[in-house]
């Protein structure tokens, strides 16, 4: 075979090394271009991510924020036994209702059977996993039978949903019965 070669004995090694350096160089340049500026500001993460999370729109208000605009319900709700129940649990989040200080849509009011299901989510005695001291529990339709009421009645025919004992106490006052009687 020929003894004369066009390339030097080591030129392929040089080329390999150059290619590797070029690849690493391209990598470093690309990294500098795509790295977010705030990365590493507080730790091994993008500092702006914290700001992004803070700026997430708030969707639920609080009861206080609902009652600012709904004073009639406010009086009933804040004086009744349901004052710890969230408005938005039954009606939906505030963000679906108010945007930029304007009403954008009306929140649904529960009707009919939906009301009974909602009440029983908390007050159903048949689900025995509830701590007995914290909440009054009844079972249906036994509760209606006990109260001598027709069993096709819905909860909100005797109980104002915003202040459940309001009408009950008023009825007792009319009848002249004491607070403790059934």
């Amino acid at each position: 075979m020929q003894q004369e070669y066009r390339s030097k004995s080591y030129s392929h090694i040089i080329r390999i090394i150059l290619i590797l350096i070029a690849v690493v160089g391209v990598g470093v340049v690309v990294r500098a271009m795509v790295m977010p500026k705030s990365f590493g500001e507080f730790g091994h993460y993008r500092g702006d991510a914290v700001v992004d999370e803070i700026n997430r729109p708030i969707r639920n208000g609080t009861n206080a924020s609902c009652l600012v605009c709904h004073p009639y319900i406010r009086k009933m709700h804040m004086e009744g036994v349901h004052k710890t129940v969230s408005c938005e649990f039954c009606h939906g989040p505030m963000a679906d209702h108010v945007k930029d200080d304007k009403v954008i849509a009306h929140l649904p009011k529960k009707q009919g059977e939906e009301i009974k299901i909602l009440c029983l989510r908390c007050h159903n005695q048949i689900i025995r996993a509830r701590p007995k001291e914290s909440i009054k529990m009844i079972s249906m339709p036994k509760h209606l039978e006990d109260q001598k009421v027709r069993i096709d009645h819905n909860c909100n025919q005797c109980h104002n949903v915003h202040a459940p004992l309001m009408w009950v106490n008023q009825a007792k006052a009319i009848v002249g019965a004491g607070e403790d009687s059934k």
Partner: peptide
């Protein structure tokens, strides 16, 4: 072959 045609003893030893 990275443009090299050198297959001398020296090259192969390297």
């Amino acid at each position: 072959t990275l443009g090299s045609d050198n297959v001398s003893e020296k090259s192969l030893a390297l």
